[in-house]
Every structure is written in structure tokens, then in C-alpha cells.
Design a binder for these strands. Structure first.
Lengths: 216, 216
DNA sequence: TAAAATTTTTGTCAAGAGGCAAATTTTTGG
DNA sequence: CCAAAAATTTGCCTCTTGACAAAAATTTTA
């Protein structure tokens, strides 16, 4: 629920440990409901009822805070991907559809709806964010691509990859229209069901001949 | 190419007119290659080789500049939607696929890849941006939804709408993975072809019974 | 050409940002 | 309980931002 995986620091008192964690959680909260602009030492301190210099003590400069925060955010999603990956009790079709549904339903969460657009925007001008996001997405797609490769073994591997990209794009894109607070939020369940069926059937009915990577 | 539709001011000298336009174009350029953070009066002026107070003269405060800029950006996309809407010389299938391809290829543009994520992020904390974006997307979807309603007249209207949302989500989401400077940028043509086929076939093979809006 | 309107420059301001340094207080392990 | 480490507070600094006001220069039009 918290959408943050915080690894403990290596040194310091347990009290300091808690503060360290509180700073990260408070930062995340600010990111979620006020956006990246509002994420300042002053605002973090204000929410925590302390001074900005105290935040500086734990995170000597803003880049360190941001990169550590990014890490906690993405680690959590990678953890979620792991859980999906390990589920082995379904057919490939069931797996594909349940993953699609899971991801779409997650993106309707306030946290996901609010945080990812900030990261997408930042990634365009910050290669550190870009790289870390890429890692996450690459790993996340792995599951889908593997399923595609089993569902459509007749398709070349690079096309299978791109199909994974398209599916992921479809999921992420729905954030904008059916995410938390968006126009289609309350239809998210129906949309999730439709999307998984459209994607599944679309992938299954792709003609082989049209998928040659060199094809015109 | 310019991705900006600037309507002339109502008053002022022609020289002032040009400056007004230059400010908006410069602002857009900054937004594209440095992002929303860097969009300050000072930076605009620096790029133009003038003083920030001169920018203030044309746009008394930043909200006015931002809302006017947003207007110019979105007006241009609405204009592009119009062009698509007017093309009547194809079958519905051809139309659907060519629209899909057109949108996906546009999103690979540097301008679109850079600007829209900024708007998505901002829309989460700025209802003015949210509303204007919604208008644009609603209008943009109209074309797709109309096609869907002709391709699948057996499906209830609200489900047709949601299919439009899913298609739009798929398009927009690809910005993140195959937009300008992204990992899959150079595969964008293949991805566009795949996506339009997956979506088309997926939509065509949706079972009617599964689409009842009240269905469990 | 002169008057009027528009544009540019100069100067100033308060608020808030990130950051540094040293004094003080609190916590913890021995 | 007591030193040493950790955490907090106090105070200050520089830079940037958006904003305002008034003087100066420029352009247009009558």
C-alpha cells in the first residue's frame, strides 16, 4: 500500500533511522499530492514539523534525496513485478489477462497516477531518472514478453519484444485517461477487462507474414 | 512543424506583435528542450537577448503566459485532428489504421515526446491544464470512436467510447517507450504497424456478450 | 512633424530556494 | 552515570524567481 521500499541506513541511532524513513515517506507524499515542484527541503520540513536544516542533515543535497527517493519508489514496483512473475498456477492466457488487469488496476491508484507522470517528465531531461525507469520497465515487460513468446512462438523474438512494448504502452497510457481523478476513473474495471481482451485477441490474430521485421 | 498555433493580439504595434509571438515560440522551445522547470521569465529573455521585464510587459504574470502557451499548443493539435477528421477517401478499416499510424508517428516527434509528459504531470495539480487536455483528448477520440461505432455497431455506445479510450491510451503510452530519444525510437514504424493491427483485430474480435456494461 | 501610444530600460523588492558552519541538545553504548 | 556519537537548532549566505514602478526611448498615426 505504501508504494515505497526503504532499505535501512548502515549507521546512526534507531531514532535517526525513523527520521530518515519519515523524510522519504513525507517526500513521497508531497510528490503525490503537490508534485515535483513542491518537493523542497522547506516543504518536507514543514510537513514534519521540523527545520529544513534537519532534512539537509540526512540528505546533504537534493540530488541525493531525489535519487534515493526514486530508488525506493522503483524498488517497490520491482518487488510487485516479482510477485506476478512467480505466480505459476495459471494458463498462459489467464496469466496474460490477469497481469494486464493487475497493472491497469494498479495504475488507477492515486500514488501511481500522480508519481509516474512526474517521472516521465523528469526522465526527458534527467538521464539518471531515464535509466532507472528503463530498468524498471524492461524488467516489467519481461513477464509479458515471455508470455507472448509462448502464446505466439511463430513470431520472431524482436517482434515479440515490440508487442510487449505495445502492451506496456497501453497500460501506462491509460493512466492519463482512467487513472486516479481522471475522467474514466470509475469505469476502470470495465476498461481493464476490455483492454486485456483487445490486446490478447489482437496479439493472437496477428498474421505471421505481416510480422517479418524487414517486411514492407 | 512548428506545433504552435498563435492567434494575433487585438492591440499593439506590429513590432510588438512579433515580440509577442517570439516569446511564445521561445517558451515552447524551452519547454521542449529544458522542461517546465526551466520555463522562467529570465530564461525566455536570455534566449531572446532581452530583459525579463520585457517579457513581463507582454505577459503580466506567469499564469497568463502559461495558459496562453497551453492554448497555442493544444490549438495546433486540434487543428491536426481536424485534418484527420476530414479525410473521407478510405474504408473504415483503412481510416482506423491510418489514424493510428499517424498519431503514433506524431508522438515520436521531439516536440510531442517532450511536451505532453510535462502536461500530464502538470494536469495532476492544475485543473486548468487538466480541463484543457481533456477537451483536446475528447475531441481527438471522437474520430476513433466514430470509426469503432461503424466497425462494431453491435457494441453499446458507452463501450465504444471506452474502446476509444483504450486506443488513445495505447497511442499516448507509446510516447514513453518509443518517443523521441527513447529506447524503441528507431523501431517506431514497426511498432506503429503492429499496434494498429493488434488494436484493429482486437476490437473486431471482441465478443458481444462480454461487453455488456453491467456484465460480471 | 508632433502628439500619442507603445515598447524598452533601469532600478528595486520580498520570498523562497539550496547550502554551509558552529553551538547546543539528545541519544546510546560502555 | 558518562563520554562519544548522533541529531537538532540557530544563524547566515547567495542565487533565482516573479513582480512592481517609473523613466526613457521608440514607433505609429493624425
Amino acid at each position: 500500500m505504501a508504494k515505497l521500499r526503504i532499505e535501512p541506513r548502515e549507521e546512526g541511532y534507531t531514532r535517526g533511522q525513523e527520521i530518515h524513513e519519515t523524510i522519504l515517506r513525507t517526500s513521497f507524499d508531497i510528490l503525490v499530492d503537490q508534485g515535483m515542484d513542491a518537493l523542497t527541503f522547506g516543504n518536507i520540513a514543514k510537513r514534519m514539523g521540523t527545520k529544513s536544516q534537519n532534512v539537509t542533515y540526512y540528505f546533504p543535497n537534493k540530488n541525493i534525496l531525489l535519487s534515493e527517493l526514486l530508488n525506493c519508489i522503483l524498488s517497490n514496483y520491482e518487488y510487485e513485478v516479482d510477485i506476478i512473475e512467480k505466480n505459476k498456477s495459471m494458463s498462459d492466457e489467464e496469466k496474460f489477462k490477469s497481469i494486464a488487469e493487475l497493472i491497469i488496476l494498479d495504475l488507477a491508484t492515486k500514488e501511481t497516477t500522480r508519481v509516474f507522470p512526474e517521472l516521465w517528465a523528469k526522465s526527458n531531461h534527467d538521464s539518471f531518472v531515464q535509466d532507472r525507469l528503463n530498468d524498471l520497465y524492461r524488467r516489467g515487460r519481461q513477464v509479458t514478453v515471455q508470455l507472448v513468446s509462448r502464446l505466439r512462438p511463430d513470431i520472431p523474438a524482436d517482434i515479440q519484444q515490440m508487442i510487449g512494448v505495445i502492451a506496456a504502452g497501453c497500460f501506462e497510457g491509460l493512466t492519463i485517461f482512467a487513472g486516479h481523478g481522471k475522467e474514466w476513473e470509475d469505469k476502470i474495471e470495465i476498461i481493464a477487462r476490455l483492454a486485456k481482451n483487445i490486446l490478447f485477441e489482437g496479439i493472437m490474430s496477428l498474421p505471421v507474414h505481416a510480422n517479418n521485421i524487414d517486411g514492407k
